[in-house]
Design a protein around this nucleic acid. Structure first.
Lengths: 114, 114
DNA sequence: TGACAATATGTCCAATCGGACATATCTACT
DNA sequence: AGTAGATATGTCCGATTGGACATATTGTCA
């Protein structure tokens, strides 16, 4: 992915809703980002369900708290690889992962004048 | 992933069936490898369905024939990221990807004395 | 308000990945 | 056998990723 686009993306913060691209993301790129965000959310859900802190999860993953935070935030520096591995590590099996992928993400609105 | 393990894995050629690990892969690592292999197979299926050669697909992906071959072969140097992106590029949508992930791979037997 | 745990953000450097190229192997046809 | 197209394998080097650390922000108590 052209990191220029990534930067524009991450710069957009949470507006990456289901219409990810008033930035110039190709449909495929947008779909990919969405897919990763679904995995992110799923990971956080698993961690919460297990009642773990990010530090604890990081330990289980042999990673660091900051990386876990980034995983859950959908940071562009986090790959789908890492998300999938992490999901498997918290006990998700294929069917759950498949469901996470199918499920569209909750809309996080773009409220301009909150 | 400890690349030592990767090497042992790839060295094992096609024996990476559903019991991927008479090599010392942790269950999660094994599950992850299996998952990627499912995506690989799915990608090849898509390409065949589209009647494309690896070269044509490579062009569409702005990649190279050799990388496409590696994707389809489940080469350890190929990430799930690349597989997912490629699947999206050949037209797979989330539900198809989810199905690919759910589906267990076809057993490719270990026949010793052919 | 202050203190503390949890989470988020920014940066660095080593490890991994990916496009490209060369070259080998396979397949089908004559 | 010889040729050609398709696929596989090996390697290189620039690009991306990830663990680690520092530091900032947030949330929840008293």
């Amino acid at each position: 992915m052209k990191q220029a686009k990534r930067e524009r993306l991450s710069a957009s913060g949470w507006r990456v809703g289901s219409a990810a691209d008033f930035l110039s993301l190709s449909p495929e790129e947008a779909a990919f980002v969405e897919l990763k965000l679904s995995l992110s959310e799923s990971l956080r859900a698993y961690r919460n369900a297990l009642g773990m802190t990010q530090i604890e999860l990081a330990k289980r993953l042999r990673s660091s708290q900051s990386r876990v935070a980034k995983m859950e935030a959908g940071d562009p520096s986090v790959s789908a690889d890492l998300l999938l591995r992490s999901l498997l590590a918290v006990g998700a099996r294929r069917p759950e992962i498949a469901r996470a992928i199918t499920r569209k993400r909750l809309r996080r609105g773009v409220s301009l004048s909150s």
